[in-house]
């Protein structure tokens, strides 16, 4: 009898069509025009950018559309040192949670424009937009966030949003 087979390759491939939903469609259309749109929960008044359908705290539809600014505060971050497939950024780089001014939930994005070891909680940042003609209907419409030059935000200003 020949050797026992130890393992087999069984790749799985499934094709889908993702749909963005009504609110995210508005968000993606606006981001191409350099605008950031969110939605406000009618119950707890929190503003979600990007919008996410129902308010996860209250379980009700977020109704009012709210425009927020493209400046914000780094609430927390990590420094990526690990190369991986499909990587486009030069190592090391910083991936951070950015609390946009006017929003209540931070969004994840890249931080550039300073050395990785200079990035800190409370750092004030501004969106670096892709040139208008090249802006995709995705978060990549913003290339990254970079220091705005303002003094750091106080811990108390973002402690509820970590």
């Amino acid at each position: 009898m020949s050797d026992v087979v130890k393992g087999i390759k069984v790749p799985v491939r499934l094709a889908y069509t993702a749909i963005a939903g009504r609110d995210m469609t508005r968000f993606y259309q606006a981001i191409r025009e350099g605008k950031l749109l969110g939605r406000r929960c009618p119950s707890c008044r929190k503003v979600y950018v990007p919008p996410r359908g129902p308010c996860p705290t209250c379980g009700v539809a977020t109704v009012d559309e709210v425009a927020v600014r493209d400046t914000g505060t780094v609430t927390t971050f990590c420094i990526v040192n690990v190369p991986y497939e499909g990587q486009t950024m030069k190592l090391p780089y910083v991936y951070a949670m950015v609390l946009l001014d006017g929003a209540d939930l931070p969004l994840p994005h890249l931080v550039q424009g300073l050395e990785a070891d200079q990035v800190r909680m409370g750092l004030r940042v501004r969106a670096s937009w892709a040139p208008e003609a090249e802006r995709p209907a995705s978060m990549e419409a913003i290339r990254w966030f970079e220091p705005s030059g303002e003094p750091d935000a106080s811990y108390d200003s973002y402690r509820e949003h970590l």
Binding site: V4, V5, K6, G7, I8, K9, V10, P11, V12, R13, L14, A15, Y16, T17, A18, I19, A20, G21, R22, M24, T25, Y28, Q29, A137
Partner: peptide
């Protein structure tokens, strides 16, 4: 609304054990 095609691919390799082996 906006939509986009996307594909999920998993490159599973399974150990089969002595019987199936």
């Amino acid at each position: 609304v906006l939509s986009a095609p996307y594909v999920l691919e998993y490159t599973y390799r399974r150990s089969v054990g002595p019987v199936l082996g």
